[in-house]
């Protein structure tokens, strides 16, 4: 599964630290999600989507091998 968190952050000029604070996780968690090392829970995915004011499937996209 790939995601567009980095792109969405860049559009809003938002740091990982800032996003982490808004969704109540650590900066390392956001970094791991961006690098596809960690797949977030549904709750966290929804929180991230809400922060960017988009839907979850606009940020998280399934790939062929998923």
């Amino acid at each position: 599964m790939r995601n567009t968190i980095k792109v969405e952050r860049a559009k809003r000029d938002m740091t990982q630290e800032r996003l982490a604070g808004l969704v109540d996780v650590s900066r390392q968690t956001i970094n791991s999600i961006e690098k596809n090392r960690y797949v977030p829970s549904t709750v966290l995915a929804l929180k991230i989507a809400r922060t960017f004011n988009v839907t979850v499937d606009q940020i998280f996209v399934l790939e062929e091998d998923d």
Binding site: V25, S26, T29, S32, Y38, P40, S41, L44
Partner: peptide, 9 residues
């Protein structure tokens, strides 16, 4: 210090 879902994992 920051106990989030990834730390839990």
């Amino acid at each position: 210090k920051i106990e989030d879902e990834m730390i839990h994992m």
